[in-house]
Simulated assay, not measured.
Amino acid sequence: MREIVQTRSQVRFLRLAALLVVIALGLALRRSGYALDLPFVVVKYGGSALWGAMVYLLVTLFVARSRPAGIAVMALVIAISVELFRLYHTPWLDAFRLTTAGALLLGRIFSLWNMLAYAIGIAAACAFDPGRWTVMHLRR
């Protein structure tokens, strides 16, 4: 029993560390991607894929005992909902979207391509989820 509790704590720590790495990579890509002469597609949709991975990792921190596929579906629903929310406009919301925090959290312009990038990021995060690998290791 103690091993399971310790393993869950380790998984939670690894997921939190992965979340922080993904956030740092996403911010670095948005800030320096063009300065590094990275292609537009890499900067734009790489950031969206990392945002999707971030959503997946956030969801894992709250519903850690769910199956990875279920977590991925929840994360995709959240990501698509945020993207669809971009179609809703009010003056105060549009003003918030013009801030750095608003652009990073909510985005500015609706794009179907972003949804694909989110799905790719969520799938990658699910595939490399530290919790998934730890559970597979314990079953052996």
Rank of each mutant, 00 (worst) to 15 (best):
Gly70Asp: 05
Leu104Pro: 03
Ser81Val: 09
Tyr56Ala: 06
Ile78Tyr: 04
Leu29Val: 02
Leu104His: 05
Leu76His: 02
Leu93Pro: 09
Pro68Phe: 07
Arg65Asp: 04
Arg30Asn: 00
Gly47Glu: 08
Pro39Phe: 04
Arg86Ile: 02
Ser66Arg: 11
Ala79Met: 01
Ala69Gln: 11
Ala123Cys: 04
Val82Phe: 15
Leu98Arg: 15
Ala119Lys: 07
His89Gly: 07
Ile120Met: 03
Leu76Gln: 04
Thr60Gly: 01
Tyr88Arg: 08
Val82Asn: 08
Val42Pro: 07
Trp113Glu: 13
Leu25Thr: 03
Ser111Ala: 11
Gly70Gln: 05
Leu116Pro: 13
Ile120Ala: 06
Ser81Arg: 03
Leu14Phe: 12
Trp113Asn: 14
Trp92His: 11
Asp37Thr: 13
Tyr56Cys: 11
Gly102Asn: 05
Thr90His: 03
Met115Ser: 02
Tyr34Phe: 14
Leu38Asp: 10
Ala79Cys: 02
Leu58Asn: 06
Ile122His: 06
Phe110Met: 05
Leu106Trp: 03
Ala24Phe: 09
Ala24Ile: 03
Ala101Lys: 08
Leu87Cys: 07
Ala18Glu: 13
Ala124Glu: 06
Met54Ile: 12
Arg108Ala: 05
Tyr88Ser: 10
Pro91Trp: 00
Met74Ser: 09
Leu38Met: 09
Ala17Phe: 13
Arg86Trp: 06
Leu105Cys: 13
Leu16Glu: 13
Leu20Ala: 15
Val59Trp: 06
Gly70Thr: 04
Tyr56Asp: 10
Asp37Asn: 15
Arg15Ile: 06
Trp113Val: 12
Phe96Lys: 10
Leu87Ser: 05
Leu27Ala: 08
Ala79Asp: 04
Tyr34Asn: 09
Ala95Trp: 14
Leu57Ile: 03
Met54Phe: 15
Gly121Tyr: 01
Val82Glu: 06
Thr99Phe: 03
His89Ile: 11
Arg31Asn: 08
Leu61Phe: 04
Leu98Ala: 14
Glu83Ser: 02
Val63Leu: 13
Pro91Val: 02
Ile80Tyr: 12
Cys126Glu: 15
Arg31Asp: 03
Leu93Thr: 06
Leu112Thr: 12
Trp51Gln: 02
Gly46Val: 00
Gly47Pro: 09
Met54Asn: 14
Thr60Tyr: 03
Leu116Ile: 12
Leu50Ile: 01
Arg15Asn: 15
Ala72Pro: 05
Ala35Gly: 07
Val22Leu: 12
Arg65Ile: 00
Leu57Cys: 08
Leu105Gly: 12
Phe62Glu: 01
Arg108Trp: 13
Gly70Asn: 06
Cys126Met: 14
Ile23Arg: 13
Ala18Ser: 13
Arg86Gln: 11
Trp113Pro: 13
Leu87Thr: 04
Leu87Asn: 05
Val82His: 08
Val43Ile: 10
Tyr56Lys: 08
Phe62Pro: 00
Leu25Val: 02
Leu36Asp: 07
Phe96Asp: 13
Ser48Asp: 14
Trp113Arg: 13
Tyr34Ile: 06
Leu36Lys: 01
Trp113Gln: 15
